[in-house]
Amino acid sequence: MDSLDRDAELLKRFRAGDREAFTTLYRAHQASVFRFALSMTGDETRAAEATQDVFIWLIHHAGAFDPSRGTLGAFLSGVARKFLRRRRAEEMRWAPLDEISLAETRSPCGDSDAETLRRAIVALPEKYREVVVRCDLEEKSYEEAASAIGIAVGTVRSRLHRARALLARKLDRRRKEEQCPA
């Protein structure tokens, strides 16, 4: 039984009242949902909240998953994406302007490339951030990323190109700053 069939079967059992089936599903998929949320937010607390939102939503909408349209993992990451976007919109509504501009802070000295990169990814505009997370961190193909985000493959490629150019510039700038500190 492949993962798609197994997930569909577990969801079916859950809908019939088997709580253990849902726990099994949660344990199988929570890490990927959490990692996606963590990559998108750069914040473990927010990622945990988003993961919780996703699975509680699934408890109440178990019938919304259609195995013929893709895997449960992809479905849950789409749900996570919507929750993150909604949360972000709510946060931006209440955040003072100063705080929004501070979101793109410079990396402190001594950060590794990975840490600088993590900060730089979080500071990217969402449409660029998402393709970087899907294609580079989750190592999805262009087609998979396009399907998950709901855009054309060509758009994924062009956004990824633009995002990587921005990130490479940031990393490069940081290296130069470290070489000749002001």
Binding site: Y26, Q52, I59, T116, L117, L137, L167, A168, L171, D172
Partner: peptide, 29 residues
Amino acid sequence: RQIRLSEAMEALAERTADASAPPSVERAI
């Protein structure tokens, strides 16, 4: 620059490879 970026991406992906939701999430669920 792009190759350096890819290396940093790999390092970042490795750092988060074992990340998972805290036990409090499972309890809430």
